[in-house]
C-alpha cells in the first residue's frame, strides 16, 4: 500500500483563512514566505491568537491581513501605522503588527513611519521591500535602485532610493533588521523576537517581484532573485563601527554585497499616553 503524503491538518491551518485561497500573489513572489514566517512566529509566541492584530495599507504585501485568520485591518494607502497607533493605545494588551510594503510604508506613508519610530509606539512593523509598486504593475518606488527600469522609469531610475534601515535607525526605532525572502528562518526568529521587544520595531524583508520588478531588470524568475540574494547577501558586522550605514544601501544592478542582519537592538522608553493616576516616574518606561 502506498504511503500517503497528504496531511489532514497543518499546524498553521488555524492561522490562515483557507476559504480565501487562492491568494492574489504571482508565481515567484516573496510575500507568502514572509506571511508564513509571521504565522509561525505567532504560533511560537505564546501570545494567544486572539491578542494578535494585523494592520496593513494598500499593495500586494498589504493583502496579507486578508489571508490571516486574525483580527485584521486592511486600511488605506500609507495609513496602517497611525491606525495601528490608535488601536494599540486603546488596547495595549494586544500585539499589533503592521504588515505592508515599501511603497505603502516609505512613500505615501513615510511621514507616519518616521514619526511612529520617533515616538517609539509599541507596534511591530514588517516591511516587504520588492523595489517597486507591484500591484499597479511595476512602477518606480522609494526603494527602487538607481538606474533600475520600471514602467515609469523606462530609461532607468534617476532617483536615489531610501536606505530603510538607516532611515529607521535615525528616526529612533529600537529594533531594525533586514533579511530577504531566502532567510525564512531569520525572518521568523526576528518577528518572534520583536513580539517580546517593547517599542517600535522594524524588519525589512527584501522579496522578489518577478512580474513587477524582475521582468525589466533581468530577474524574470523569482528564483533568480533568490539566487542573487544567496550569492550576494553578507551579514553585517557591528553597525556602524564595522559596517557603516552607507554600506546598507541596496543596489541590485551591481555585484555589490547586500548587507543583512540585525542592525539596531536597543532599549528606549516606550510611548505611553499620560495618565494622571501614574506616579510621575512611571510616565515613561
Amino acid at each position: 500500500m502506498a504511503h500517503t503524503l497528504v496531511a489532514e491538518k497543518h499546524p498553521l491551518d488555524d492561522l490562515i483563512r483557507t476559504d480565501r485561497m487562492p491568494h492574489i500573489w504571482c508565481p515567484g513572489c516573496g510575500i507568502g514566505i514572509v506571511m508564513r514566517c509571521y504565522a509561525q512566529a505567532i504560533l511560537e509566541s505564546g501570545i494567544p491568537v486572539e491578542q494578535h492584530v494585523i494592520v496593513s495599507g494598500i499593495g500586494c504585501a498589504a493583502r496579507t491581513p486578508g489571508y490571516m485568520n486574525l483580527d485584521s485591518y486592511h486600511t488605506t494607502h500609507g495609513r496602517p501605522i497611525p491606525f495601528a497607533t490608535g488601536l494599540k493605545l486603546v488596547k495595549p494588551e494586544l500585539m499589533v503588527t503592521v504588515f505592508s510594503g515599501d511603497g505603502d510604508l516609505a512613500a505615501i506613508g513615510g511621514n507616519h513611519l518616521i514619526h511612529a519610530a520617533r515616538r517609539n509606539v509599541d507596534i511591530k512593523v514588517i516591511c516587504i521591500n520588492n523595489f517597486n509598486y507591484g500591484m499597479t504593475g511595476g512602477q518606480v518606488g522609494p526603494t527602487t535602485p538607481l538606474g533600475a527600469k520600471t514602467t515609469t522609469t523606462p530609461y532607468g531610475n534617476p532617483e536615489y532610493p531610501f536606505n530603510l534601515p538607516y532611515l529607521l535607525a535615525a528616526a529612533g526605532a529600537v529594533f531594525v533588521s533586514r533579511w530577504t525572502a531566502i532567510h525564512a528562518r531569520q525572518v521568523k526568529e526576528d518577528i518572534l523576537y520583536t513580539f517580546h521587544k517593547p517599542g517600535f520595531t522594524f524588519i525589512e524583508v527584501l522579496a522578489p517581484c518577478p512580474v513587477g520588478f524582475g521582468k525589466s531588470n533581468n530577474l524574470d524568475e523569482g528564483v533568480e532573485e533568490m539566487w542573487l540574494y544567496r550569492r550576494r547577501c553578507v551579514p553585517a558586522g557591528r553597525v556602524p563601527e564595522e559596517t557603516p550605514w552607507e554600506a546598507l544601501q541596496v543596489d541590485l544592478r551591481e555585484e555589490r554585497p547586500i548587507v543583512v542582519g540585525r542592525f539596531v537592538d536597543e532599549d528606549r522608553p516606550v510611548y505611553r499616553p499620560v495618565r494622571l493616576e501614574d506616579k510621575p516616574s512611571e510616565h515613561r518606561g
Binding site: P82, F83, T85, N111
Partner: peptide, 18 residues
C-alpha cells in the same frame, strides 16, 4: 499626531478597539 491624516486614522483605529 504628525498631521490630520494620521489623526483620523488614529481615531478610526482607536474606535475599532472600542
Amino acid at each position: 499626531m504628525e498631521d490630520e491624516i494620521a489623526s483620523i486614522l488614529a481615531i478610526i483605529g482607536a474606535s475599532a478597539a472600542g
